[in-house]
Amino acid sequence: MIEFWTRFARNKGAVFGLVVLVGVIALAAFAHMLFPQSPWRMTGAPFQPPGAQPGHWLGTDTLGRDIAAGIAHGARVSILVGLVSTAVAVGIGVIAGAVAGYFGGLIDTAVMRFTEFFQTIPSVVLAIVLVAILQPSIESIIIAIAIVSWPPVARLVRGEFLTLRTREFVEAARVIGQSDTRIILTQILPNSLSPVIVTASLMVATAILLESAIAFLGLGDRNMMSWGYMIGAARTVIREAWWMSFFPGFAIFITVLAINLVGEGLNDALNPRLARQGRQ
């Protein structure tokens, strides 16, 4: 553990990212205390630039809702969607990849063809179509993002399994008669976890970006304030009110940046032998 932290801390960017990320999570967690009013509430005059009205230091939107409150509450949606959809995607990906890599042969071909098929369809378009068909809601957004995100995990896990399944300790487990499920879960999976964790951390970032894009296009959950929604709603008034789209976009930028940096730090800490090559 200490070794892990030392390696992680050697990457200054990662430490910076972690600090920012903790800040964003704190903002999300304490949004209701920092901004007790609903972010949908019209607390000021419409179209106020940052600082023009006391209490609205990031300005107000077209209806007089506080931008800062929106950003704080929007952090919740971003983090929620990012984490949950990644968890689902990793779940699907690990199962598909493990099955394909462990059993090989026809099963492997079938699963990998299926994965390839999914990767053929541009993910942004597929996600949008899915959300529209399932009707826009936080659940449908999570499902859609998970469905378009799992293939890389599957490929990664399959690769790990292909190499690991011939190792001595797996052979040994097989010789003593352990079941396939048990071997997968207790022998191979734990040993292939490091790259999965790194990939998952980066997927959270991608999921946040994708969620914001969906909300930007007007397919977000209307009951939850989100950053993408704020930009989408402010897009049309960008001539008159730059702050309405600038700040939420910057919030996405800094959050995703932080997660990516943390991901690289994790990579350094978990996969020291790969660290030199950088991320591909």
């Binding site: 609903s38 949908w40 509430r41 019209m42 077209t62 209806l63 529209a132 009707q135 826009p136 809601s137 007007g218 397919l219 977000g220 959950d221 209307r222 009951n223 709603a233 049309t236």
Partner: peptide, 28 residues
């Protein structure tokens, strides 16, 4: 379009002021 989206958001907020929770179900 946007104007009607804003109207829905406004209505939802106003109704919440009188204790009526209106859940917006966006649809094409």
């Amino acid at each position: 379009g946007e104007t009607w989206d804003r109207l829905a958001e406004y209505t939802r907020q106003q109704l919440s002021e009188i204790g009526v929770d209106a859940e917006i179900e966006a649809a094409d």
